[in-house]
Design a protein around this nucleic acid. Sequence first.
RNA 1: GGACCCGUAGUGUAGCGGUUAACACGUCUCCCUGUCACGGAGAAGAUCGAGGGUUCGAUUCCCUUCGGGUCCG
Length: 378
Amino acid sequence: MISFRITKKSKRSNARLGVLKTPHGTVQTPAFVAVATQGTVKALTHDQLRLTDTQLAISNTFHLHLKPGEDVVAKHGGLHKFTKLPLPLMTDSGGFQVFSLGFGKDLKIGKIANGKSRIAVRHSQQPKEIRITDKGVWFRSPVDGKKLFLGPKMSIRIQQKLGADIILAFDECPPPVADYAYNQASLVKTHAWATVCLKTHTSKQALYGIVQGGKYRDLRIQSAKFIGSLPFDGFAIGGEFGADAKGMRKMLEWVNAELPEKKPRHLLGIGHLKDIPEVIKSGVDTFDCIVPTHYARHGTAFTSKGRLDFSKAALLKDKRSIDPACQCAVCRMYSRAYICHLVRAKEMSGLTLLTIHNLFFFNTYVANLRTAIARGTL
RNA sequence: GGACCCGUAGUGUAGCGGUUAACACGUCUCCCUGUCACGGAGAAGAUCGAGGGUUCGAUUCCCUUCGGGUCCG
């Protein structure tokens, strides 16, 4: 089981400080959650992960179901014993893969509609390679092409075998380009699945419900009220939130105003640096995002002065650390020039060093925001 | 001494008697918010070794030459 205690509420915003206790450790919130899809933070050993001040990580049900399979993990005693990850863990339910392997793949879009968000998905439309039904979703396995079903019951059963501290309800993440009617119908499924997840759930793991509703205010509020009324241990917020950080905060505030105040709130898949203060000010406690780790592996470092692209040869001349203002293990040791060389030479240690720095940078950034809440300035 | 092969963007290759010479890697620019290191989108970059000839037209055919290589003696 988990426990969550709010230690301070901001007077300037809806931000709050809290302590989230799990069987595998305590998390000071608001907290950034590292993505560990396959049971590892990509490019890092656990010792390296310790250098990043990461408090919590999220793995993925869909991916672990495919490889190595939940039964293998269960035979090793669950995710913590299997992976030895020295952190509290969450598992995502697979609901995002309904989008990413469906309309996301068809339309080559991410969950955030950048720029012009033309409606491209209408009511009762189906993605090409997967089929969304009232009971769940038929996928085609990216591993061997076989048909593969995942629904609320199955997702919870898998997540119980995986054994993370916090598990998530199975939802449908609708595409950002879906019209109102699509979102409305999708929400009916996500809500029905939420109740199935609760009924299926028998473990002591914390189970979070998921709020959807797209960019539509009435649907977001309806979803937050319904999901918030159910006996979940916490709540996650999924889907899209418009194109900019300010709009995102507004949408999150619609939702957070309806959710039970004392339970933890997790925001799924958001976390560019510019978004983070807004997300926290909206009253979110934890949020995961691929950005620091994923961008690191594509050669980009985040710094107090903006992004740095280490694939650019110009950095070969630069003797400074990634960010002279950063205290991470990488910035205390390595030069931009060397890291740039490693990235350009496609040495994996380059990606590792950037991952360590980026995660530390994000965690420090959030730690500073916690301090700001404590001081009453956020 | 004889026979033959090759020489096309930074690199490795494809190609054909006829509009803006193709591909891969590399380079450069941009993009990647519940992940994809081995990703996405664009751009730049070649007087097709040199000289001559045949032809309406040659990177493509012929000759010479230079450079690299293989085999025989």
